[in-house]
């Protein structure tokens, strides 16, 4: 063949030299798909709470005082709640009443002192050294 288009250019004439500029885009990664679907499963054993219906060892009218604000162990070992990052968590305030729908009894037991402290809602787990 006398001459052909591109003969006097540096356009690769060998497949090996062309392939360096051609990623193998037919190889589609799939590992993450299986990992993702697999990871969505959570499981536990169901606990049958029938025993709570009857209190054979207690007379039916027995009751005790329930002091919700009493610090049974709050001083030394307060509950530290999980801070979860959720979508749309940047709103300043909203008008929804979270406590709406609770029974009268439940509402009345809520602490007068307000809600849980912000600093008790933390992102990271308690380090092991703390007890």
């Amino acid at each position: 063949m006398s001459s052909y288009p591109g003969e006097h250019t540096n356009i690769p004439k060998h497949l090996a030299e062309s392939l360096q500029y051609q990623p193998l885009n037919h190889l589609v990664p799939k590992t993450e798909i299986s990992a993702l679907l697999h990871s969505t499963f959570s499981w536990t054993v169901k606990v049958n709470n029938d025993v709570m219906e009857t209190s054979p060892s207690l007379p039916l009218n027995e009751s005790v005082s329930f002091q919700l604000s009493s610090p049974s162990n709050s001083a030394e070992d307060p509950l530290k709640f999980k801070r979860i990052k959720l979508q749309g968590m940047d709103k300043e305030s909203s008008s929804t009443d979270i406590f709406e729908g609770l029974s009268a009894l439940a509402k009345s037991m809520l602490p007068h002192t307000g809600t849980v402290n912000s600093d008790l809602v933390v992102a990271n787990a308690i380090p092991h050294s703390q007890k």
Partner: peptide
């Protein structure tokens, strides 16, 4: 969706936990 609502949520959870502890 707000910091306040998160605190209220955990107040409820706290009550639930304390009731069982009691």
């Amino acid at each position: 969706s707000t910091e306040d609502e998160m605190r209220q949520y955990y107040t409820l959870i706290s009550m639930s936990i304390k009731a069982l502890q009691a």
